[in-house]
């Protein structure tokens, strides 16, 4: 949930209740869908990274010329990509 525009200003009790209710409603109605959408995007990004950096991993997917053209866009994502790909995954992680 978005924080108040002025963090220094003490939030009134009413505003806290309002934020709480908004949070609960968002959590019930949409949070699961938002995380599912994020996960779908993550898998697509994994695919993109694999295609882009495939030849560096020993799996040439596209010609190196195009890989090099795309590289500036892929480099900033390498760290988080590695972090996610190397993470231990289990079937019990996929309940929701």
């Amino acid at each position: 949930m978005a924080d108040s525009k002025d963090p220094a200003k003490a939030k009134s009790r009413g505003r806290k209740v309002k934020e709480g209710v908004k949070g609960v409603f968002y959590g019930m109605a949409a949070h699961g869908h938002v995380t599912a959408a994020l996960r779908t995007r993550m898998y697509l990004e994994h695919l993109f990274m694999f295609i882009t950096l495939g030849d560096m991993l020993g799996v040439p997917v596209i010609p190196p010329y195009y890989s090099l053209k795309i590289l500036p866009y892929a480099v900033p994502n390498i760290k988080s990509w590695k972090q996610r790909v190397f993470r231990e995954r289990d079937f019990t992680d996929q309940v929701f």
Partner: peptide
Amino acid sequence: MYMDGVEYFPVSRYVLWGYQFKS
């Protein structure tokens, strides 16, 4: 610790309560 904005990211307790209850 492992924030990646996809699976690991901090969420307000109200949001998470709503999500947990709905699940």
